[in-house]
Design a protein around this nucleic acid. Structure first.
Lengths: 351, 351
DNA sequence: GATTGGCACTCGGTCGGTGAGAGTGCTGGA
DNA sequence: TCCAGCACTCTCACCGACCGAGTGCCAATC
């Protein structure tokens, strides 16, 4: 056999064992956090071969870029590519236990409002996976307008409150020209609600413009201003908010980071970038995993991100939730937890 | 002079110099993060005396519990008590620069809604102080009811949305018995608003009970349920929410923590405990500082907390904002930043 | 041809010792 | 009251040696 290794040259039984070795390496390394050598591997897993044979397999795996050794004469460690193969082909799904599922269900259903649902989902993910949890607040897409409230807040400002029929509430400050007495404001509020309540976002434009025509000259500017604010608030453009929790978990497992956790924490605080990453990687349905350098975000090259969409049962996701931890993570467990929480979240959420 | 030191035994000039030495130690240690010795002290500060004299003063300061040495033949480090004295008597206020103030003002005034104001305040604190920022969302105290909305969310659930006249919005899920048609819901909504709009929290009880009497038998249970939810949501009891940001700053300066940052991060995630600490320490007016072990919270014994109330100009605070960093922090700078942000926040906020 | 035992080799981590440096406390004198 | 000098202590960085884990290769075996 030539020195350069190629998967096509080995027979089926050899290839199977090599993948077994890879799986064993991943599992052991995840558990012990230490490079794993050939001897220990044969002791802890029933591979049915001697350390020497395992060494040969390891050499092949290393040649293929699936494992690496931190330095000569240390054990092997999976590479990003190795984790990828493990996740795609080797990992066995490990569903949550019934008590766990029940705990998720009850904990989520005890939520007192929408923000609380998100907060609880975050805490669940953080606790179940032992990593950082990121939850995007449900987006406003495809919702209609339920009620529009104008609240004066003194000094020429009005607070515009928008309630959608999915129960989402958005608020926006609005500077108004000149003063505005309560009566006029009440009148405008009534008109707005008459014109817009029940309409979908897409229909709001025309509803508002016809309202602007029907309103006395001196309030026309205000009406268009409110209309702008409302459509802006409801448009998908409006920057989405995310919730971060479980950073303390990083400190626990995070001693293993080469670069320390500073870059990781910093990357997590770049909410826009982070949200972009999550959105980009999240699949249509199911759970998506991004490993190590697959994350294009600078500080996350030593972490893996597990995301799932949630929010609707018909596969058209409203928002994302994810778990971020070291590449050396328990993938089956993390995937199961993220999937389960996403599923229950979709069930609990209105709409 | 006897070996045991007592402040009353020294004359005025000596005492003054000793405090100068303490100030110099605090300032140097904050800057360099290294224990400071007598020689360096005389080199970097114009104390006008020799290292030997400084050593005597140091011995006295140590006797008084204001400084300590990590080990024999290392320089001195301020104790919590030393920082306390520094903050109370020695620190000179260092107001922010005009550009800084202007930056705060414009950054806050660009906020698009209430949540955004809080988020921006947090980012400001985190950036200006270089520590972790904690901002409590404005509380509901002393506000009246502006509007009450009932949104059906399918499967026997109603979302109750409460808008106060300070612009705060609270939402609560409510399980309703049986089904509820849209018309009835609309009717109830109108009645609720007629009965409760404009009322203060304290007046709501009677308003709701008389409403319950005036409503047909079959909806009485629903009305009382809604009334309960609303008063619960508005009562101060309702757990307050806080925003945390800038944890990455901990990793930067945090290498100095004896115990590592895990306990700190964990303490920060105990939101209830954290909020209790902040509430307890926050003074009526102005900025409060809690140093090291003065924080009764376990994980925060190596950190100092600087808080200020914000939200109203008449000294009756609505909520709290604070900066949490290592005890070895720049107290004058941190205090100035917290105070400034709190002040502008009070100005920007409605109410 | 795959597998295995044996063996030499490499390299990181640990341990003990050592020297330099920093800082202190103390003492005696101005 | 201050200060210069001195002996002492303790940490840290460095060095060398050693140990053990793990590897790669080779020849023998199934």
């Amino acid at each position: 056999m030539p020195r350069t290794f190629s998967w096509t040259e080995v027979n089926a039984v050899s290839e199977r064992r090599r993948l077994d070795v890879l799986r064993a390496i991943v599992e052991d390394y995840v558990r012990t956090r230490e490079p794993v050598g050939s001897r220990i591997l044969t002791e802890r897993h029933k591979l049915g071969v001697s350390p020497a044979t395992v060494r040969n397999d390891m050499a092949a795996l290393e040649e293929a870029g699936l494992i690496a050794q931190p330095h000569t004469s240390a054990g092997r460690v999976p590479t990003d590519k190795g984790y990828r193969l493990f996740v795609d082909q080797l990992a066995e799904v490990r569903p949550l236990t019934v008590p766990q599922k029940r705990a998720i269900e009850t904990f989520l259903s005890e939520a007192v409002d929408l923000d609380d649902v998100v907060a609880r989902a975050g805490r669940l993910i953080a606790q179940l996976t032992g990593h950082v949890a990121v939850v995007q607040y449900p987006s406003l897409r495809r919702s209609g307008l339920r009620h529009l409230e104008l609240v004066p807040t003194g000094d020429n400002r009005v607070l515009v409150v928008v309630i959608t029929d999915t129960g989402r509430v958005e608020q926006r400050f609005l500077d108004v020209p000149g003063t505005l007495d309560d009566w006029t404001l009440g009148e405008l509020r009534a008109r707005f609600n008459a014109a817009a309540a029940g309409r979908r976002l897409t229909e709001l434009g025309s509803a508002f413009s016809s309202l602007a025509d029907a309103v006395p000259e001196e309030h026309r500017a205000l009406v268009t201003a409110v209309a702008e604010v409302v459509t802006a608030a409801l448009s998908e453009e409006s920057e989405e908010r995310i919730l971060l929790t479980g950073q303390a978990n990083l400190a626990r497992s995070g001693m293993g980071f080469e670069q320390g956790l500073r870059p990781v924490l910093e990357a997590l605080e770049e909410q826009v970038v982070l949200l972009g990453l999550l959105t980009e990687m999240t699949d249509e349905a199911g759970v998506a995993v991004s490993i190590g350098h697959e994350n294009r975000v600078a500080g996350l090259s030593e972490t893996s991100v597990v995301t799932a969409g949630y929010g609707s049962s018909d596969g058209d996701n409203v928002a994302i939730l994810s778990s971020i931890g070291p590449t050396r993570m328990d993938y089956p467990g993390t995937i199961a937890a993220v999937r389960a929480v996403a599923r229950y979240l979709s069930r609990v959420l209105p709409g």
